[in-house]
Design a protein around this nucleic acid. Sequence first.
DNA 1: GAAACCATTTGCCATTTGGCAAAAAACGAT
DNA 2: ATCGTTTTTTGCCAAATGGCAAATGGTTTC
Lengths: 189, 189
Amino acid sequence: MEEFINYLLQFGNLNQQQIGLIKSKATEIELHKDKYYWEAGKTVKQIGFLTDGVIRVFYYNNKGEEITRYFIDENHLILSGNTVAEVFTPSEYLSALTDCKLVVFSKQDWKDLSETIIGWDSIVQKIITKHHSEKITRRSELVSQDGTERYLDFMQKFPTLVNRVPLAYIASYLGITQSSLSRIRKNIR
Amino acid sequence: MEEFINYLLQFGNLNQQQIGLIKSKATEIELHKDKYYWEAGKTVKQIGFLTDGVIRVFYYNNKGEEITRYFIDENHLILSGNTVAEVFTPSEYLSALTDCKLVVFSKQDWKDLSETIIGWDSIVQKIITKHHSEKITRRSELVSQDGTERYLDFMQKFPTLVNRVPLAYIASYLGITQSSLSRIRKNIR
DNA sequence: GAAACCATTTGCCATTTGGCAAAAAACGAT
DNA sequence: ATCGTTTTTTGCCAAATGGCAAATGGTTTC
């Protein structure tokens, strides 16, 4: 919970009353390994902040292959592109790669925060924008790199993930096959 | 100019007074082919909306190769990730692929609009979010596709661009070499 | 029309990656 | 420790892509 507050404070100021209000509306939950946090086609009813664990975001392409779009690790907010939207139905899946802990808010409570706390929307907006930019930059760079560069880059940017994410998922994130990734790893050593 | 207003109206309502105010602050400019709209390291002083032409966004990777991150075609707003930021210095280049026409606003005027028009920020935010999501989706899909799929996809998503953008730039956007693209094109016919 | 310039295609060969299946290694539960 | 399961590595060969340079095609300029 404190992690979440500290995270928010990076993006704007909050006084003790406001922090109290946020805490009063938050619920801490656990999400076990391999459980879905979001499922394509199922309405999202809460906003969450990941305090522990790793979540994988993926979708299926037109060949039915599972494509990992990205990983979410500790201290990241999980919300739909359009926060305000009353009803949001994702087209991708979010699934726990490890046991996870999250701080979650109902859509209604989140809305209350937005209406009560001056600057809340601005904080949230900054967070969303930051995440978007990161994702664009990361995915973008992959396109012009070969397998080895992609993997080296991945290790550099997600050092905490390399050792706790199955290689098959990393390969699917990098856009190469698992055997290629394995060969690449061999050559690097 | 009307294109711009219509574009805005897709994202929220504006009354005649508000539209008048927006128009009064807008300036229409031309940007000739091969001129820069943004240059890495140079402060951006205006917000623009492209009404005619195509702009290419690119950067240099660590090997000094020019990488095209994306193309901007008609009816797209050009602003930095963080609109509000007083000073924004891009790390990429925006250069006109064709002669372009833009509607531009100074940062100050843009700020005035934000402070005067209720809902302006929300409209702008929706636009930014939409653009971000599109970019993430597009770049993301490229990663898991082979050259042919990338090109077919590109043609489908940017039908208006295929015939007016040099192949070298398309190749760099797709993350393949120009010769590969040329061979791919031959095989498709 | 010729020359100069730029964009695109092609040839040749090396390198990388994919596809598929089997082997090896790592992990968990009993 | 052993069995069963999952993850990772390999081998083999086909297909795709890269790198480089030359050839072709198209456009502009004088």
